[in-house]
Structures are given as structure tokens and as C-alpha cells.
């Protein structure tokens, strides 16, 4: 499995769409792929770097991106023209950006998400199992343990942040044939614990706050992705911790470690384990397993 490489996908021509008079939405592909997401990252990074007049919001998404613009400053067509220029000059298979590798401790099969998922069994495809049992079986694993092994075996890239403040959508950094895939609940739950680790489609998420949700529930992290009061030192500059392009390394922990970290988080003293790295799309596509190893070593 160490010999795998990821073949970049041929993307269609981007579709430039007006979102009313004050947004531009650009669909890079209908299907998720690293190529599409890296392109969204690269273009939005270039937009930020160029400080284009009239751009109010600059939002990469999984296989698309969106800008909010001030049409009193720049006509949407002027901005689209510049986006086309950026796109034409871009070599997404050989692109780098400065990002972070982040340690995300996770207590899998924790009591809180377990209680929630049991409560909503009637909304699930498999009323007799747990979400992990269902996901393991669907993806051809003999056991929940083996499924969790695969889930933590390679880091997950934050390909988009949104829906609500701080919610990261993450895509595991493995070749397509090793991507895990699970449908969402048949009918969404009305409740999910905060900091729950969920999985739906091909994306893992961390729920910032308690609320409704439809992703399969696997565990809970003791660390926050949203800190509105900015009590924790890592939230000094923003109430949200994860950013698009970050690399999350989910790490299996036991209850004892969960409680220790949680205590520090609640005391406002916990400091996140993260290190800056330069992410290279070329090196990643060439030898993802080896490259991932090197990436996560920086926080070992």
C-alpha cells in the first residue's frame, strides 16, 4: 500500500455563476477530488494575495469556491475575468501552501455520542447496530477496530469550513480506493453532542456546538473548534480554530487522556499541538503515504 500514488483528475472547465449581484460562485467539479479541492484552495489563496478590489468574502469549498463581492466597487464580470486569469496560470499539480499539521485527540466509542446515536436508532439505516459497526461493515472491515485503524491511519485535510462557525469538513488524504464512504442518517437527528466526530459521504466533521446533525457518529474530541469567548490561547486571533487547508491528524486516546485534556481545556490552559508545514501537492500526489508520514512526524 506504500506504493500507491494519486493520479490527478482532469477537471472540466470551471462554471462561473452569479450569486445575485453580490456573489460569484465557481464550480470546479461536480465530484470531490483532491485536484478540485487543491484548485479551490490555490485560487482563493491567489485571490487573497492579489487583494482584488471589491472582494468582501473569499471562501474555498470542497470542489468549488465562492466570493462575496461589492458590485459598487467592481463589476462581477471584472472579477470573473481576473479569476479566469488566475485559473489559467495555475498548475495545481505543482503548488504549495503554508499550513499546519494539527493533533486532534479523539475518544472513539465515547459514552456521549453513544447515548445520542442509540437514542436516534429509528432514524438510522441499521437500527440494531452502532454507527461504527454499520460503517465498518459497509466499507468491508471485519471489526470496528479495523475501521478506526483506517480512519486514523492517514491525516484528513480541512477542505472547507462552514455551515456554522468553526465546523471543518475534512477529506482523508488517501487514494480514492481507500477513501471511506458512508451515507448520512436516513433522517437527521435533532441532537448531537458538541465536539462529536462525524462522518458522512466522504467527509469527516467536528461538530462545534450541540445541535441537529445527520452524520454517522464515531467519537468525541476533548478540544474545541469554536471558542466564542476566546479563553483558550490558540483562539487569540479568531473564535474559530480550524482553517481551510489545515491538516488534522486524528489520534485515538483513552478516557483518562480525554479527561486530562478536557480539564485543561475547561481551565483555559490547553495549548493545541500544531506545527507549521509547507504542503506540496506534487509530493502528495507522488507518494501520499510516505508524504503523510513526514507531515505527521512534525507533531510526533
Amino acid at each position: 500500500m506504500g506504493d500507491d500514488r494519486i493520479t490527478p483528475v482532469d477537471l472540466p472547465e470551471p462554471r462561473y455563476e452569479y450569486g445575485g449581484d453580490d456573489h460569484v460562485f465557481v464550480e470546479l467539479a461536480e465530484a470531490m477530488s483532491f485536484t478540485a479541492n487543491f484548485k479551490a484552495m490555490a485560487i482563493t489563496q491567489q485571490v487573497a494575495e492579489r487583494e482584488i478590489d471589491g472582494v468582501v468574502e473569499n471562501c474555498p469549498a470542497n470542489a468549488s469556491y465562492m466570493l462575496r463581492i461589492d458590485p459598487d466597487v467592481a463589476h462581477p464580470d471584472t472579477i470573473i475575468e481576473e479569476l479566469r486569469e488566475i485559473e489559467a496560470a495555475l498548475d495545481v499539480e505543482n503548488y504549495e501552501w503554508e499550513t499546519r499539521v494539527i493533533d486532534v485527540p479523539v475518544l472513539f466509542e465515547d459514552p456521549w455520542t453513544h447515548e445520542t446515536l442509540m437514542e436516534f436508532r429509528d432514524r438510522h439505516q441499521d437500527p440494531d447496530g452502532t454507527d461504527l459497526e454499520y460503517s465498518a461493515e459497509l466499507n468491508g472491515f471485519d471489526s470496528v477496530e479495523a475501521f478506526i485503524d483506517a480512519f486514523v491511519a492517514a491525516p484528513h485535510m480541512v477542505t472547507m469550513v462552514g455551515f456554522v462557525p468553526g465546523l471543518p469538513w475534512c477529506f482523508q488524504m488517501v487514494p480514492r480506493e481507500r477513501q471511506l464512504e458512508v451515507p448520512k442518517y436516513v433522517e437527521p437527528r435533532t441532537d448531537t453532542p458538541s465536539r462529536a466526530i462525524g462522518f458522512g459521504g466522504a467527509f469527516s466533521v467536528i461538530y462545534p456546538v450541540q445541535g441537529a446533525g445527520g452524520y454517522q457518529l464515531y467519537g468525541r474530541t476533548p478540544i474545541e473548534v469554536l471558542d466564542v469567548d476566546q479563553r483558550l490561547p490558540d483562539f487569540e486571533d479568531s473564535i474559530v480554530y480550524p482553517n481551510p487547508g489545515d491538516i488534522l491528524n486524528y489520534r485515538r486516546i483513552d478516557r483518562e487522556e480525554y479527561d486530562e485534556i478536557r480539564e485543561e481545556v475547561e481551565a483555559g490552559s490547553y495549548e493545541y499541538t500544531d506545527e507549521p508545514v509547507t504542503f506540496s501537492t506534487e509530493e502528495f500526489f507522488d507518494a501520499p503515504d510516505e508524504y503523510n508520514q513526514r507531515l505527521v512526524e512534525v507533531i510526533a
Binding site: F25, A29, E30, S64, M66, M160, P183
Partner: peptide, 21 residues
């Protein structure tokens, strides 16, 4: 349904929603 989009026909690969959309 394309890869990553989810199973329901109303699903697309997650994207940004303009205000007013």
C-alpha cells in the same frame, strides 16, 4: 451521484451558499 455528494438526489458536493441563495 458524483463521489462525495451524498446519496439523496438533492445532494451536491458541499459548497458555499450565497446570502439570498
Amino acid at each position: 451521484q458524483p463521489f462525495g455528494a451524498g446519496t439523496d438526489p438533492s445532494n451536491v458536493v458541499d459548497l458555499g451558499y450565497p446570502v439570498g441563495s
